[in-house]
Design a protein around this nucleic acid. Structure first.
Length: 157
DNA sequence: TAGGCCATCTGGTCCT
DNA sequence: AGGACCAGATGGCCTA
């Protein structure tokens, strides 16, 4: 991977070659809400993600099909299946099918912009040690390491 | 086939 | 009231 047109500094090469995302420092992992199993990502599944654009950001029909996965639909209201367990919900918001679908579209767009940011970040961090596309968690961890490295470099000069 | 990663849906909470 | 954000759940795809 080229480094954004910059000359490849030997120090940076050493940094990149020395990166070990598998043994990422424990202190850099996320908090208690982090899902189990994300600490040792493999570096080998990406090709299918080149279609990072949302399938159909405005495809109401497809989202409607998926809506039936968890919900019982009435013409105008959504009722959460099994929602009775949430006794703490004080002010439950009843929304219409149209509102739910609109929220789904907004969420897809939000996640799309999030992925765009991840793609931009991937282009900013040196990754030529890896042939495959970095996952999101790998990208974040590499960025943390890279920033730390550059900070140390600045402070030592 | 199991595990990793991701897209999507969903409901709760916060904010405007 | 409604949008943004978040995290859990679910299912699909891919690789070892």
């Amino acid at each position: 991977m080229e480094l954004q047109g910059r000359s490849v500094d030997s120090t940076l090469i050493g940094f990149v070659n020395g990166i070990n995302l598998i043994d990422f420092p424990q202190k850099c992992t996320l908090g208690p809400r982090q899902q189990v199993g994300e600490t040792a990502p493999s570096l080998s599944n990406h090709a299918r993600l080149t279609h990072s654009s949302p399938r159909d950001l405005d495809d109401e029909a497809s989202s409607e099909d998926l809506c039936t996965r968890h919900l019982v639909m009435s013409p105008t209201r959504y009722y959460s299946r099994g929602g009775h367990g949430h006794s703490k919900s004080k002010r439950r918001r009843i929304i219409t099918v149209v509102q739910r679908q609109a929220a789904n579209v907004r969420e897809r767009k939000r996640m799309f912009s999030l992925n765009e940011a991840f793609d931009e970040l991937r282009r900013k961090v040196p990754t030529f040690a890896y042939e495959k596309r970095l996952s999101r968690i790998e990208t974040l961890r590499l960025a943390i390491v890279y920033i730390s490295f550059m900070t140390d470099l600045l402070e030592s000069s």
